[in-house]
Design a protein around this nucleic acid. Sequence first.
RNA 1: GUCCCCAUCGUCUAGAGGCCUAGGACACCUCCCUUUCACGGAGGCGACCGGGGUUCGAAUCCCCGUGGGGACGCCA
Length: 494
Amino acid sequence: MVIRTRFAPSPTGFLHIGGARTALFSWAYAKKHGGKFILRIEDTDVERSTPAAVQAILDGMHWLGLDYDEGPFYQMQRMETYKQVLQTMLDNGTAYHCYCSKEELDALRESQMQQGLKPRYDGRWRPETGKTLPTIPNGIAPTVRFKNPQTGVVAWDDLVKGRIEIANAELDDLIIARADGTPTYNFCVVVDDFEMGITQVIRGDDHVNNTPRQINMLMALAAHDSNLKIPQYAHLSMILGGDGQKLSKRHGAVSVMQYHEDGYLKEAVLNYLARLGWSHGDAEIFNMQQFCEWFDLDHITPSAAQFNTEKLNWLNAHYIKEANLDALAEDISARLQPQGLSPQNIPAEAGYSYVKANIHKGSMASNLISAPDLKAVLNLYRERANNLNQLANDVAYFYTLPQASSADVEKHITPEIMPAMQKLQQQLTHIEWTAEAIHQAINAVVAEFGLKFPKLAMPLRVMLTGIAQSPSIDQVMALLGQNETLTRINAYLK
RNA sequence: GUCCCCAUCGUCUAGAGGCCUAGGACACCUCCCUUUCACGGAGGCGACCGGGGUUCGAAUCCCCGUGGGGACGCCA
């Protein structure tokens, strides 16, 4: 049997982290078994569905690389099918018209709640042999309800939660078509999962309660269609926010694209999500190919998982170190643009001063030199970064003049070290511009003045990078370039 | 309220009756490395919700509590 899974989001908002994990698991399950992954947009709620949300979902999936084999299918374009099935059910008596008004239903619910009962439809329009139905009121368009069995139990072996049984007595006759004739969610899901040949329904925990109703409908349909097979169900428990609270629009339910903007690599997000609720022994770091080979439903935890940004950061750091340098440079370059810095677009011959002229409107000296190569810079910095925005921020001083804080200047650039700095500056003018030679030059001055290395390295950091933390200062200088290094030092020597 | 689900370090998890003195990872702490900050390396702290069973033996199975969550829409 060919495995067919689907991801069926409703386009009422962006693709959030929970939806992304559901999609990831469905996708991986299909990949693992050489099956098909189908994308279906559940847009039957005309009020809340928007084209923008559809696009947001598509964008999110595209960013993560969750490609689908079929679809996207839009339920609103499948109306004819639903109407046909609806008519069939009406004809064969598995569904019926209900003329209750919303007000009537609300009143019913309220009184049931007050009596401490489970709110449910009381079946007043449910046809029964020997029962007289109320008189059909004027001016009320009826809804269609599914005639749910009233006795017995519905049961299924949930692929993550195990066997679940629910008494039919707990279920009422749900509305499957609105007064305006449009079908509702539970009905469309049933028709689509059947017609699209879905073999495993992998979805959120919040659908557990819908499952018995859907199975009942499927069975009603099956009675008239021998091809129908009931899919297997796997219900994923939810992802909680870092504080253990449920994620919601107002509570940290961030769009998956937000992670992109916030400086995360898709590899990190994917790896993190894969480990949230699923495990493969002690494996923590693995790529999607590996994941697809390992993935199974047996190792999904049935309990809810809390989102932990710290661990995501750790994975992000790992993938930044592993990233392809060209791709990384492209990404960082894009993150530098908003700051007016575009290292990759600088004409080689224009060089570094070109950038400065554009940023500082000519306020800097304009020695014509080359801007430091972004890839080389990133290679030096990626080891210490766990976020792309942070990384972009860290390397920005290579392309624009840094502004040191007065605290750092006071602390490190003391009058006492100025003679040594002066000497170093002179030495720097006539050496070969390599990290090694620079290192030797600093060492020589340090020895001559009886200092410790950091005594000179720290002020250099502040002068050159604007802050007191950086990679090896000799390497920074080598990359910054001789002219720019001297220019920045001179600015402090006056 | 009713029904359903869940329960191992702070967090993500391993664990399918003896391999458990409960393993790994993130975070945290200590030390090492060191040219600052990071990276990295080595250690450390730290959990089976409670109570009853079943069994020679239970984190693992059963029951009851407790706690948490979900669902009860002409939303999906």
